[in-house]
């Protein structure tokens, strides 16, 4: 295969990864922005979303698109509920102390992962894509569903932008992010907002999980990679900055796609992880983020 088609395939793969990543990382970024806590269990919400998608799809017979659509609805709701509950039961009691919250979410990570192992088992299980079609390029074929994922990500990110910028709920969230105390003084129930934001972040992760499961299959250990990559994206994009997150997701997704194809996927991960550690040290607010408050 010539260099052109090679690059095309690498770009497509990179864009698909960027698409899923931007949704996942948006959730992490939102939680960090508003609550100022780092959620290490975020990857497990992706996994939980995928696993619930499998349960939903396997309960419904008929056209695969039915099962997929149902999963897209049920999965984020259930995952959001789990997140809401864990926020109320655990995180709130810690008063969002950053260090304690990280330790608690590590605990949550193990609890979610191992509970899924108990209930769902150690196998990887597939969910049928809503449609099955392969686009034929002269040099290779490419699954149309993967292109659909890119489209879906654009729609969802648009939706997030709309909610944050144009609705009252978004205003409340932005206020809480900008200045917790002042927001509280203006009668915004910051405490309850936190629970909803945590749930919303998890729901975004779950949506990413549902979108990815026809490509990847649901497996109890699938949460590690999305977590690491979202960390990378959120840190490079600037902690809490939504537009930075999207930009970084595209950057990381594309460069990862291309470096993995030209060199080695392990090397790609090593480079981006090291880069991120250094960004955190030398540009603590990310490449695009504003000064932290």
């Amino acid at each position: 295969m010539g260099f052109g088609p090679y690059l095309l395939l690498a770009t497509l793969e990179g864009l698909v990864q960027a698409a899923v990543l931007s949704i996942t990382a948006a959730g992490l970024s939102l939680v960090f922005g508003v609550m100022r806590v780092v959620n290490v269990a975020h990857g497990e919400f992706v996994m939980l979303g995928a696993v619930i998608a499998w349960f939903t799809a396997s309960l419904l017979t008929g056209h695969p698109a039915m099962g997929f659509a149902a999963a897209l609805l049920v999965s984020p709701l259930l995952v959001g509920a789990v997140a809401f509950a864990s926020e109320r039961v655990v995180l709130r009691r810690l008063d969002y102390n950053p260090e304690a919250t990280i330790v608690a979410t590590i605990g949550l990570l193990y609890i979610l992962q191992q509970t899924v192992l108990l209930v769902y088992g150690p196998d990887a299980r597939p969910v049928d894509p809503p449609f099955y079609y392969t686009i034929r390029f002269p040099w290779f074929g490419y699954s149309a569903y993967k292109l659909f994922v890119i489209g879906a990500a654009i729609v969802i990110m648009g939706g997030i932008w709309f909610v944050l910028q144009k609705t009252r709920a978004g205003l409340v969230m932005r206020a809480a992010q900008y200045d917790r105390e002042t927001a509280q003084a203006f009668g915004i129930p910051v405490d309850r907002v936190s629970a909803w934001v945590f749930a919303l972040g998890a729901m975004l992760a779950a949506i990413a999980g549902v979108l990815v499961v026809p490509i990847q299959q649901a497996h109890y250990l699938m949460g590690a990679d999305p977590l690491l990559l979202s960390f990378i994206v959120v840190i490079i994009g600037g902690l809490g900055s939504m537009s930075g997150t999207v930009l970084a997701a595209v950057l990381v997704g594309l460069s990862d796609g291309i470096i993995s194809m030209m060199f080695s996927p392990t090397l790609a991960k090593m480079v981006s992880t090291l880069l991120v550690a250094l960004v955190l040290v030398f540009r603590p607010n990310g490449l695009l983020g504003k000064a932290a408050r």
Partner: peptide, 9 residues
């Protein structure tokens, strides 16, 4: 590994 297309070229 969980994604393979990148290896196939």
């Amino acid at each position: 590994e969980t994604s393979f297309t990148r290896y196939l070229p």
